[in-house]
Design a protein around this nucleic acid. Structure first.
Lengths: 181, 181
DNA sequence: GGTTGCATGTAAAACGTTACATGATTTT
DNA sequence: AAAATCATGTAACGTTTTACATGCAACC
C-alpha cells in the first residue's frame, strides 16, 4: 500500500506521543507548516486510512461531553515510519509568486521589480518574526529544533537577499536617471 | 474573471515574444521551473481559456507539415499582466520532504538525521549545478537574471546549511560516543 | 448571551501531474 | 531505420483547499 506524503506527517507526530486529529493539525500549524502544510480535509480521512491499514490505533477519549479520538502508533506504524526515514526524499516543491512577479517585472517597469522585492522581503520578515517567537516561547526538542533554525536562518537570508537586490536596482535606476538628466 | 496563477506565467512569457504552447513549456522548464512549474496539462487548456477571454490571440503558423499555434498578447492581456504585477503576491508554498525527514529523524536515530541532511545537500547541489550551467550558457535578460541569481545563491546557501548542520550533529555524536567509551 | 476554542467531519471545487495518443520532422 | 525533437492535446488520477455543518465547553 502506497502512503501519501501527508500520512508520514501523521505517523511522525504520533511517534512523539498519542494525539487527536485536532492536536495534529494544531501542531502542524505551529511547526511544519512553513515547509509542509496539512488541512483537516487531509488529516481526518488519512487517520481513517492509517487506522484501517493497522499503522495507527484510535481510541475514544472524550473530554467532558466533547468527543475526542486519540490515535497512537502501532508497531507496524513505527516500522513504516522508519522505512520512510531510511529512503531519500523525493518531493521538493516551491511556488513563489513574488519571484514570478520579479521575473516578469519588465512589463511593469522598474517600480514593479522594486515593489515585488519589497513585498517578498516583508513576507519573509513576517514569517521570520513568527518563527523567532516560536523559538523564544518554547523551543522544540531534538531535530525539530534544527528545522526551526533552518526556517529562521533561511527566511532571514531571503529577506536580506531582497533588500540587497532592491538596493542594487535602485542604484542602477539612479545612475540611469542621472545619465538622462 | 479570476485567472489562475499559471495563466500569469503564460501572459508573462508572451509579453516577451509570441510563442507556441510547446515553446512556453520549454521556456518554463529552463527558467521558472525551480520556483514555478507548469505542465502541458495546464498550459494547453489555459491557452484556450486566455484566448476565449481575449487576453491572448492564437494564429496557426505551421512549420513544414507540423501544425503549430503561436499566441501573442492582446492589449487587454498586457493590461491584465500589468494589473497582476501591481498587486502584492499571495502564494508562497514550500514542500520539502527532506526537511520533514529531518524533523522526524528521532525515530530513526542520528544516522537518519545525517542521511536526510546529506540527501538534501546533494539535491541542492544538483540544482545549483544546473542553474550555474544556465548562467554560463546563456544568461537571461533583465529581472529574469536576478531571479536566476536568487536560485543560485539560495541553493548554495541551503547546501551549505546542510553541510554545516551535518558537521554539528557529527560533532555532537562524536562527543557522545567518547563520553560513553 | 456571545465569542472563542476544542473537536470531528464531508462535499465540492480547484489544482496539478502523469500517462497516453497522435503525427510530422530532424538527426544519428 | 531508429531515435530524438517538435507539436498538440486529453483523460484519469491524485492531491489540497475551502467552505460548510455540527456541537460541546470555557470564558467574558
Amino acid at each position: 500500500m502506497e502512503l501519501s506524503s501527508t500520512a508520514h506527517v501523521i505517523l511522525g507526530m504520533l511517534s512523539w506521543r498519542p494525539m487527536s486529529g485536532y492536536e495534529i493539525k494544531a501542531l502542524v500549524d505551529r511547526s511544519t507548516r512553513f515547509f509542509w502544510a496539512a488541512s483537516y480535509g487531509q488529516i481526518y480521512p488519512e487517520l481513517r486510512k492509517l487506522s484501517a491499514a493497522g499503522l495507527i490505533e484510535g481510541k475514544a477519549e472524550p473530554r467532558g461531553g466533547r468527543r475526542r479520538n486519540v490515535y497512537r502508533l502501532t508497531p507496524a506504524g513505527r516500522r513504516e515510519l522508519e522505512a520512510w526515514l531510511s529512503v531519500d526524499a523525493e518531493t521538493f516543491e516551491l511556488r513563489d509568486e513574488g519571484l514570478l512577479k520579479l521575473f516578469f517585472a519588465e512589463a511593469g517597469g522598474s517600480e514593479a521589480a522594486i515593489k515585488a522585492l519589497d513585498a517578498k522581503r516583508r513576507d519573509h520578515e513576517r514569517l521570520l518574526s513568527r518563527l523567532e517567537e516560536m523559538e523564544a516561547t518554547g523551543r522544540p526538542d531534538g531535530f525539530a529544533y534544527q528545522v526551526l533554525r533552518y526556517g529562521i536562518e533561511c527566511n532571514r537570508w531571503q529577506a536580506e537577499w531582497c533588500e540587497r537586490t532592491m538596493r542594487e536596482l535602485e542604484k542602477e535606476l539612479d545612475a540611469e536617471s542621472r545619465r538622462s538628466a
